[in-house]
């Protein structure tokens, strides 16, 4: 017994040490981004890997908040993310529930057709034409409906639903519970970890919306934060600039501004995960049912 617990403690020690090292490696670059956004431009240009702004400056933030472009596009992003994710969860849950039922017919062909769409896509132009024919152009729907269900996440959710204990369905049926009630009263509440995961995935997907916004929406007031972010990050990237052109020299923003925009545009979505984390523990409930 003692030996095993010694072993166990050594195991813990190594495990924690490795994880801490890795997390340090992942978080330092982000600290660098934040520190650079609060530093003077001079310090940023002269320091390779700034971790603390010894020359503190809020100039970058004053600059990015000097126009209403940033707050407005953040607002758009938050709206699209919240509304879009809600639509995703609804649509994905319905379909995943059906396809996870053991009695459903034609499941294999339907699943194959779902996977098929992950492999073959029509491309920009046909997607655009469908959105246009549906009259969605220039509305937020264009950012949400065409991605209402992601096949990948659908399959994951089906897999989670399938792992719910079989007895659940039968006992619910005996209680005279219909499919609708089974889904909303039993299956979904028992699948909180899976739903939390999907919420995170979909929210991140919407937060990163970029190309769709530019293609489907002409009204710049409806563009999400990523359009601004990528424009600012890419302006200085010669590789992406139109070949042979020397346009845009007057527009290259200072590094501090780039870092400030990255910070502001990343923070809200980073906060989603810690908030969702508590739902990952609710599997305990599931376990007790299963046992």
């Amino acid at each position: 017994m003692i030996r095993s617990s010694l072993w166990s403690r050594a195991f813990d020690g190594v495990n924690v040490a490795l994880l801490l090292m890795f997390s340090l490696g992942t978080v330092l670059p982000f600290i660098h981004v934040i520190a650079s956004s609060f530093a003077s431009e001079r310090l940023v240009a002269e320091t390779d890997f700034l971790l603390f702004p010894t020359e503190f400056s809020l100039k970058a933030y004053q600059y990015i908040f000097s126009s209403d472009a940033l707050p407005r596009s953040m607002g758009v992003s938050v709206f699209v993310t919240v509304a879009g994710t809600a639509l995703n969860l609804f649509m994905t849950s319905l379909m995943a529930y059906s396809l996870s039922r053991r009695t459903i017919r034609f499941r294999a062909p339907i699943m194959f057709l779902v996977v098929f769409t992950m492999i073959f896509q029509g491309g920009l132009i046909p997607d655009y034409l469908v959105v246009k024919e549906l009259g969605l152009l220039d509305s937020y729907w264009a950012l949400m409906l065409p991605r209402a269900i992601l096949p990948f996440y659908l399959i994951i959710l089906i897999n989670f639903f399938k792992q719910l204990p079989d007895g659940l369905e039968e006992s619910a049926r005996i209680d005279g519970c219909g499919d609708l009630r089974l889904l909303f009263r039993i299956v979904l509440p028992l699948s909180l970890p899976a739903l939390a995961t999907l919420t995170l995935f979909y929210a991140v997907m919407h937060w990163n919306t970029y190309m769709h916004a530019i293609l489907y929406i002409n009204d710049m007031d409806k563009w999400p934060i990523q359009v601004l972010l990528r424009q600012i990050v890419l302006i200085s990237q010669a590789g992406f600039v139109e070949q042979g052109s020397v346009e845009g020299e007057a527009s290259i923003p200072p590094d501090t501004v780039r870092m400030a925009v990255i910070t502001v545009a990343t923070f809200p979505i980073l906060l989603v995960y810690p908030f969702l984390q508590k739902y990952f523990a609710s599997g305990i409930l599931l376990g007790s049912v299963k046992g």
């Binding site: 920009l124 190309m211 530019i214 293609l215 990528r230 424009q231 600039v241 139109e242 845009g248």
Partner: peptide
Amino acid sequence: WVPNNVYGEK
């Protein structure tokens, strides 16, 4: 107006 780096797609 279209950002220059995606003008081709648009």
